[in-house]
Simulated assay, not measured.
Amino acid sequence: MGRKRLITDSYPAVKRREGPAGHNKGELAPELEAEIQPLSVDEVELELLRHFDLAWQYGPCTGITRLQRWHRAEQMGLEPPPEVYQALQTHPGDPRFQFSLWHFYPL
């Protein structure tokens, strides 16, 4: 019998390239850090509302507006976040804020 075959017999070993000097794993390159822009207030509020849509503890969110869902959760004693209510009150006519994530998907 011959020698036992190893996985490295079929696939050649590849050496990893060294990164640029002074660059550590898990850190952005200095040129990329300059390109990152902070989120606007509207983007932060929309992200908060998306998290509210995905939080199952406040009940289903399809077929009703976010404000209706927030009031229903409050009536049931589920203590929905007051920040969500404030975000909904600051944008009363904007469908991006009033309707849930799933509003534009047909059921």
Rank of each mutant, 00 (worst) to 15 (best):
Pro81Asn: 13
His71Trp: 12
Glu47Asn: 12
Glu33Pro: 00
Leu48Met: 14
Leu49Lys: 01
Ile7Gly: 07
Glu18Gln: 12
Asp42Ser: 12
Arg72Pro: 04
Gln68Arg: 10
Pro95Ser: 03
Phe104His: 14
Ala13Ile: 15
Leu46Gln: 05
Leu107Ala: 08
Asp94Ser: 07
Leu67Trp: 05
Val44Thr: 06
Gly22Pro: 05
Arg5Ile: 11
Phe104Ser: 14
Gln75Arg: 13
Gly59Ile: 08
Lys15Thr: 14
Pro95Gly: 01
Leu107His: 09
Glu74Pro: 01
His71Val: 10
Gln68Trp: 06
Leu39Val: 14
Glu35Met: 15
Ala21Cys: 03
Gly63Cys: 08
Val41Phe: 11
Glu31Ser: 09
Leu32Phe: 13
Leu49Pro: 00
Asp94Val: 09
Tyr58Asn: 01
Val14Ser: 03
Gln89Asp: 01
Val84Cys: 05
Gly19Val: 07
Phe52Glu: 00
Tyr58Gly: 01
Gln57Val: 14
Ala13His: 13
Leu101Gly: 02
Gly93His: 15
Gln68Gly: 08
Asp94Trp: 09
Glu35Val: 15
Pro38Trp: 02
Gln89Ala: 03
Glu45Met: 10
Phe99Trp: 08
Ala73Phe: 09
Glu45His: 11
Ser10Phe: 14
Gly63Gln: 08
Met76Ser: 11
Tyr105Asn: 09
Thr90Asp: 09
Leu101Pro: 01
Pro95Glu: 03
Tyr58Lys: 04
Gln37Ile: 12
Ala29Lys: 10
Val84Tyr: 00
His23Val: 10
Pro92Ser: 02
Ala21Pro: 09
Thr62His: 07
Asp42Gln: 13
Gln68Ala: 13
Leu49Glu: 00
Leu67Gly: 04
Arg5Thr: 07
Glu31Pro: 02
Ala13Glu: 14
Pro60Cys: 04
Tyr85Phe: 09
Arg3Ser: 09
Thr8Tyr: 07
Arg69Pro: 04
Arg17Gln: 09
Gln75Ala: 12
Glu31Asp: 14
Ile36His: 04
Glu31Thr: 11
Pro95Cys: 01
Gly22Glu: 15
Glu31Gly: 08
Ala34Gly: 10
Glu45Trp: 02
Pro20Val: 06
Asp53Val: 12
Trp56Arg: 13
Leu6Ile: 15
Ile64Leu: 08
Gly26Ser: 06
Asp9Glu: 10
Met1Ser: 13
Pro38His: 02
Phe104Tyr: 13
Val44Ala: 00
Phe99His: 05
Glu79Tyr: 15
Arg66Asn: 10
Pro20Glu: 12
Arg96Asn: 05
Glu47Lys: 14
Ser40Trp: 07
Leu39Asn: 13
Ser40Ala: 10
Leu101Ile: 07
Ser10Trp: 12
Arg3Met: 07
Glu79Met: 15
Asp53His: 11
Trp70Arg: 01
Leu101Lys: 02
Leu48Cys: 04
Glu33Gly: 04
Gly59Asp: 03
Pro12Gln: 05
Leu67Pro: 01
Ala34Met: 11
Trp56Met: 06
Pro92Tyr: 04
Trp56Asn: 03
